[in-house]
Design a protein around this nucleic acid. Structure first.
Length: 832
RNA sequence: GCCGGGAUGGUGAAAUGGUAGACACUCAGGACUUAAAAUCCUGUGCCUGAUAAAGGCGUGCGAGUUCGAGUCUCGCUCCCGGCACCA
């Protein structure tokens, strides 16, 4: 029959070439008359490894959505670019003895070729590269605005330091195991002067505005937890012998009467001043021990709290009781005030510590109902700890008060201050490496830190021979004296440039804005373009960015919104995280395990169309799946069958499409449309497979016109083969009229429903048989329930007893409730 | 410990409270072939039964609501992801 076989490599090569000559197919226009759709997928870090299967998955989801939207008449912005700055490129360049610029250009070229091979319909007219000076001049400009508003400050502080990358890191870049999220090296603490962005100033709005966006619940919760907002109060305790004051933060001011000691973090600035001479030696030893512990070791030792007594006391402002001051590393320097009031009776950590060091435990809350008598008595005797609410006891004037209302009463009474604290840390923004945006600041010994004049932007990276990082925590840029030495923009005297660079998260914090107007030389994007295209309508990316890129970019966007530069308070109207593709052994794909699947190898075997469809067909987009080569075969078979049907049709030329096929076609159009909108790509593909099965099961009785509608809905998923078959069938020849420029087919409501309805018949809720009735009869309850057409099997079950109820749910089901004598007896027994 | 998400055949998975297992993979049998691959056809949740007819069981566990529960409610167990001495 068919002389030609499905040969994906041949047709994909051909259309890749043709599409390259018609980039306008994918161009978004600044056309206010048209309705826009901004579909964004996270731009890749162009590493030496090339595109991986995870990229392909996310980009295919975006591509299907973009193509579908175009066919539905939207003016679609579906852009792509390169998140090119960062450590891996720099390390790769060092290894290969080339410059990072060369490494980047090389990798970008590879990625571009691979993306074209996958058939992604990106608007390359708007391509961006974060390491391009024309791009990063605006990244630097935003930094200067942050500085001007006091949101970028230089501070000397202990920071997370990666000894392998020889650079400081943000809190978000350290995993919960205390490792650098990029290279897996245990992170150390180091004192350095760093630029810090005050993301905490936006903490409340970053939480609150989550209500205004469509993110899945897990993303919202993860961001909320990461920001970690706690309401509480600050109290001041006066240290005895006039040794100053200690401020603590607590979320439970009501437990103040039960506070029996104070704990300072080892790094707390008051420790040296308040330590008594007898305790000096012990405290010093403890602190130096704590310093050597990494973050990982500290949290590993959770169960084993240690500390030392300083030899000094404070007075409890409520009870007048004497409270010893301890130093312990279970109290963190950088949360709250770095000091706590310990209430062992009502806090598990304090309880454990008090037990170990034999400190007094004083219960002040009598538990509410729901606590057993036994438990209550162990609590009231100080043998256990209770963190819930209840009635105040042993609390003087507050006795009998409910613990919740006691909170503000206590704060007021002793002159505390209600405070909100966050787990979120300010964003450490300096990196001591070469391959990043230079921070556009100058230091003058007379004038201090000043931004470079905006007219000098971009401050470009000077060429450099030696990229090796330094041990002392300064950037390799510090070695380029002619670049470092400059004049003060204020007094004209000698000054030095900042030699640290920005983290790789900088460029990606605003890139979606640049796509709106990527060639603009005067501003990051024109107001007009942003008003039209923003916000992003759908943003697809990886879950690993939830508390990194996603949070950072929301922060920058809100800052730009406050400056009146961007038109929306939130950058992304809808965000979906895709799952992970694992290796076939179920483990994570990694170079070291040697189990990485290279998507281009798969393209060579089965073609890009099959690879795209396989990844979408794996299952729901947010789940994780191991790589399964035999399932890939399944979609390849599907495409071959599509190919063969098309070939057969060209010969047979059917006039009228068989009714069953026609109805299935319209049902499929409807199903595929709804599923793309819901991102249920797997069931959309299943529906197209069902359609093919229907066509084959009914002797291929479909005419070319109806078949073409199927090619249209196939086009977003398998753009190459759909184009090939569309062009074969068109036969017009002369001018190129792409399948991807066609209008999405509509479905006929009357054809979507079947002519007959199959209704399940149940007896006592148990399925027994079905009856088939014409659609016109679904409303005729009497007729349906009294029909003699019931199957014998059903009648048999009904005959076992007496019908006590008949239920007909229109078009859905029939249920006969039958009382069976035996059953009735047992029921009566039960009731009796 | 806290937060979020899950648990359905041999496998990946479908199922607005209404025929559980669509679609695909795997496997078995058959066709084509000298043979294999590819392709096509048939079967494929478990149990009883004869490979039939028919029946029973079945969506992690235990209760509940309902004429009817994979789906809703309550209580558990386990798995995955995130956070974790956050006062």
């Amino acid at each position: 029959m068919s002389e030609s076989e499905y040969d994906p490599l041949k047709i994909e090569q051909r259309w890749m070439g043709v599409w390259a000559e018609h980039p306008e197919l994918n161009h978004a226009r600044l056309d206010r008359a048209a309705e826009k759709k901004y579909v964004l997928v996270e731009f890749p870090y162009p590493s030496g490894a090339g595109l991986h299967v995870g990229h392909v998955w996310g980009y295919t989801m975006g591509d299907v959505t973009a193509r579908y939207s175009r066919m539905n008449g939207y003016n679609v912005l579906f852009p792509m670019g390169w998140d090119a700055f960062g450590l891996p490129t720099e390390n790769y360049a060092i290894k290969k003895h080339i410059t990072p610029q060369e490494a980047t250009a090389e990798n970008v070229a590879t990625f571009r070729t691979q993306m074209d091979a996958m058939g992604f319909s990106f608007d390359w007219q708007r391509e961006i590269n974060t390491s391009d000076p024309d791009y990063y001049r605006f990244t630097q400009w935003i930094f200067i605005q942050l500085f001007k508003k006091g949101l970028a400050v230089k501070e000397k502080m202990p920071i997370n330091w990666c000894p392998k990358c020889k650079s400081g890191l943000a809190n978000e870049e350290v995993t919960s195991d205390g490792l650098h999220e990029r290279c897996g090296t245990p992170v150390e603490q180091k004192m350095l002067e760093q630029w810090v962005l005050k993301i905490t100033e936006y903490a409340d709005r970053l939480i609150k505005d989550l209500q205004t966006v469509d993110y899945t619940e897990d993303i919202k919760q993860q961001q909320i937890n990461w920001i970690g907002r706690s309401e509480g109060a600050k109290f001041t305790f006066r240290v005895k012998d006039n040794k100053g004051e200690i401020e603590v933060f607590t979320t439970r001011p009501d437990t103040l009467p039960g506070a029996t000691y104070i704990v300072l973090a080892p790094e707390h600035h008051l420790v040296p001043g308040i330590t008594s001479s007898e305790q000096q030696e012990e405290v010093t030893r403890y602190i130096s021990q704590a310093k050597t512990k990494t973050r990982l070791q500290r949290s590993d030792l959770q169960k084993d709290k240690t500390g030392v007594f300083t030899g000094t006391h404070v007075t409890n402002p409520l009870t007048g009781e004497n409270m010893p001051i301890w130093v312990a590393d279970y109290v963190l320097t950088d949360y709250g005030t770095g000091a706590i009031m310990a209430v062992p009776a009502h806090d598990e950590r304090d309880f454990e510590f008090a037990k170990r060091y034999d400190l007094p435990i004083k219960p002040v809350i009598d538990p509410k109902d729901g606590v057993g008598d036994e438990e209550r008595s162990t609590l009231l005797s100080g043998e256990s700890c209770y963190v819930g609410e209840g009635t105040m006891i042993n609390s003087g004037q507050f006795d009998g008060v409910d613990s919740v209302s006691a909170r503000s009463a206590v704060v007021e009474h002793i002159g505390g201050v209600k405070t909100v604290t966050y787990k979120l840390r300010d964003w450490i923004f300096s990196r001591q490496r070469y391959w990043g945006e230079p921070i556009p600041m100058v230091y003058c010994s007379d004038c201090g830190w000043l931004p470079v004049p905006e007219s000098d932007l971009p401050i470009t990276l000077p060429p450099i021979d030696n990229l090796d990082p330094t041990e002392d925590g300064s950037s390799p840029l510090a070695r380029v004296e002619e670049w470092v030495n400059t004049v003060c923009p204020s007094c004209g005297g000698t000054a030095k440039r900042e030699t640290d660079t920005m983290p790789n998260w900088a460029g990606s914090s605003w890139y979606f804005l640049r796509y709106c107007d990527s060639k603009n030389e005067n501003e990051l994007a024109s107001r007009q373009a942003m008003e039209y295209f923003m916000p992003v309508d759908l943003y697809i990316g990886g879950a690993e960015h939830t508390t990194l890129h996603l949070l950072y970019s929301r922060f920058w966007h809100k800052f730009l919104y406050d400056l009146g530069i961007v038109p929306t308070a939130e950058p992304y109207a809808k965000r979906r995280n895709r799952g992970l593709i694992l290796a076939s052994d179920g483990r994570k794909m990694s170079k070291s395990l040697g189990n990485v699947v290279n998507p281009l190898d798969e393209v060579d075997k089965v073609g890009a169309d099959a690879l795209r469809m396989y990844e979408l067909f794996m299952g729901p987009f947010q789940e994780s799946f191991p790589w399964n080569p035999s399932a890939l075969k399944g979609v390849y078979r599907f495409l071959s069958r599509v190919w063969n049907i098309n070939a057969g049709m060209q010969e047979a030329s059917v006039e009228d499409t068989n009714e069953k096929i026609l109805r299935k076609l319209h049902q499929t159009i409807q199903k595929v449309s709804l599923d793309i909108e819901d991102m249920k790509f797997n069931t959309a593909i299943a529906a197209m497979m069902e359609f093919i099965n229907e066509v084959e099961g009914n002797n291929f009785a479909i005419n070319i016109n109806d078949w073409s509608k199927f090619l249209l809905i196939l086009a977003p998923f398998a753009p190459f083969v759909a184009e090939e078959l569309w062009q074969l069938n068109a036969k017009s020849g002369s001018s190129f009229d792409s399948v991807h420029a066609q209008t999405w087919p509509t479905f006929d409501e009357n054809l979507v429903v079947s002519s007959e309805v199959v209704i399940p018949v149940q007896v006592n809720g148990k399925f027994r048989s079905t009856i088939t009735i014409p659609v016109s009869e679904v409303d005729l309850q009497e007729k349906i329930l009294n029909m003699g057409r019931l199957a014998e099997g059903v009648k048999k079950h009904i005959a076992q007893g007496e019908i006590i109820r008949e239920i007909y749910v229109k078009g859905k089901t029939i249920n006969f409730v039958v009382r069976i004598p035996d059953d009735a007896t047992t029921r009566e027994n039960k009731q009796g």
